[in-house]
Nucleic acid binder design. Structure first.
Lengths: 325, 325
DNA sequence: TCAAAAGTGTTATCCTTACACCCATGT
DNA sequence: ACATGGGTGTAAGGATAACACTTTTGA
């Protein structure tokens, strides 16, 4: 059942570590000191030193950033040649196992800075994903026209694909009557990559006709395939929010319902209906009032709540299944 | 950002290849000829020979089994030491990337047999997962008593865990008022493994007190961690059914609605409500009548349907979102 | 004529979405 | 007093789950 040759290869762990600052989702970026674009923190997987991936991950994150991450989840294992190797400084990993981790912003960022790491707003890398101030201009100004011509250039579905470029564009970007689905972050990034519209595609040698026009850069690029891993992380987190109580890993011990809503909205990249959100939170009994009040920031004081950790032991899969609004 | 040493390690691809025979879900098993338990087909990942995992997977499956798989999806990357290394014949892979693939039963199984592979009913490995003939006896006779004492032996949550053994048991196996969730296949297998109740746990050196009693074996064991990968595959397929039209990869070109229902039921491991299922299928317009009738097998003849491939291009994410019944 | 499976009609309930108004504080 | 955000009641519409009965064939 086994082939004759086996090539030894090296494995990297790459972590998308998310934290929250007010209503801004942050991602831990590493390697800001080096020349070239920043990346996600990553480290080698040493099977002899670490019994599992998760242990290895927690270890190298703690070492490199003095951060203790709470929730950790495997995302995907990326192994494409060509999306990793062509970067400026050679990366020996042929394969990287991507992880999502959630944490709270540290009080003190000296350790981070010493390690050449810092938290960055994640929408800098994906400006088209933030719909909180309305439909992002960049979509109609730049992205959709460019993707439109890219789709026209090949009207039939490419080999190995069910959908044509135009159909993929329709679902991913909510064109031609399709709704915008905030969870399709990866599909959107992949389309932009294939169309040669993100910096990484040019770097990897995809010289799409459109790319030569040198449009305004679509979001900040990242090293290797790290922006793809970040896209996967955002997509997963946006989905997970709806069926697991993971938001609370990002919240302070006590919070108001509006703060909770702002956090969910920041991740989902869109606004939610206030009353419906509150009813939802109430119905799931995920939180309980502390009895305290928040000293208002310009309005009526809000009641403070805390996450009821017991729910995890009470009911099977509680999350905030927010819908259309 | 990188550690000083990097150990070269080898990567295996392991495939859970599913097909259907009437109302029996089958899994392709390999290595039946060798001594020891059977396993899933697997092969090394050669980064120089294959550009992506998926290409590598399709290649080695085609080579080893003369099977053309349709739908392919990455499941998870397993890297635990101790769940792989202790097997009888040494396996050099430290890491295996698990894949789910769907196919149709070949007319001719000579090529399979020549490769030492054959399709096996998957419930042989997970007898407690099939509720179509009512609640499986093995649950109350063997599994729950054994897991009950295992839970009593450690009433507090283990380090690094939120839930106690008893709470995990409650959710995974639907005890103490919790409902049985057919998607929790992996959670159930993991509990049995931790409790030392499956053969693989003993083989890996977990000498749980209970294991010494040598209970009737709980399902057929598999090589390495292959039963864990299969559990992941079943769980994923059971979940995916509900939001993507993947069943049709397992169906013949034309089928009756009852055959479609039997297939879904076989995968989900439980019966569905006939009228509601039909209404659901109708509402999603996933199928269209061919106009033909199936010559009845002991009853009124049934109308034949085919999958409407166009739906994939029409609507975003069609699946059979069947609920309680 | 009877068994076996195909196929249909209807109702109660809950959940989702939407709408509009009142309340308590700081400036 | 007014601006700002906190907080609530209720109704329409759709989806879900449950109910039982009729139809068409082969033996």
């Amino acid at each position: 059942m086994s082939g004759p040759r086996r090539t030894p290869i090296e494995i990297g762990l790459t972590a998308a570590i998310v934290a929250m600052e007010k209503a801004t989702p942050l991602i831990l970026a590493a390697g800001a000191d080096a020349r070239g674009p920043i990346g996600l923190p990553s480290g080698p997987f040493e099977p002899l030193a670490h019994r599992t991936f998760e242990i290895a991950l927690r270890n190298f994150v703690a070492e490199q950033t003095a951060l203790a991450v709470g929730y950790v989840e495997q995302l995907y294992t990326f192994g494409d040649r060509g999306r990793h190797a062509r970067a400026e400084d050679a990366d020996p990993h042929v394969l990287s196992v991507g992880y999502l981790a959630l944490t709270r912003l540290p009080d003190e960022d000296a350790a981070l800075i010493a390690a050449g790491a810092r938290f960055e707003p994640w929408y800098r890398f994906f400006p088209w994903e933030d719909w909180r101030d309305g439909r992002p201009k960049i979509l109609d100004d730049t992205i959709l026209p460019a993707l439109g011509s890219w789709a026209k250039a090949a009207p039939r579905a490419e080999p190995g694909r069910v959908l044509s470029r135009r159909e993929r564009l329709r679902f991913a970007f909510g064109v031609e009557g399709s709704p915008w689905d905030e969870e399709k972050v990866l599909e959107r990034y992949e389309l932009l990559y294939e169309a040669g519209l993100v910096e990484e595609a040019r770097r990897d040698g995809r010289e799409a006709a459109l790319a030569r026009k040198t449009l305004a850069p679509l979001g900040e690029p990242m090293r290797f395939d790290h922006r793809r891993i970040l896209a996967t992380a955002i997509a997963r987190l946006r989905a997970k929010l709806k069926y697991r109580p993971v938001v609370f890993e990002l919240m302070a011990e006590e919070f108001t319902l509006t703060e909770l809503q702002r956090t969910v909205e920041a991740i989902a990249g869109r606004h939610l209906h206030k009353q419906n959100f509150r009813r939802l939170v109430e119905a799931t009994s995920l939180v309980e009032p502390t009895g305290e009040m928040a000293t208002a920031t310009g309005g009526r004081p809000a009641a403070l709540y805390r996450f009821r950790r017991e729910v995890v032991a009470e009911r099977p899969s509680p999350g905030l299944r927010f819908g259309a609004r």
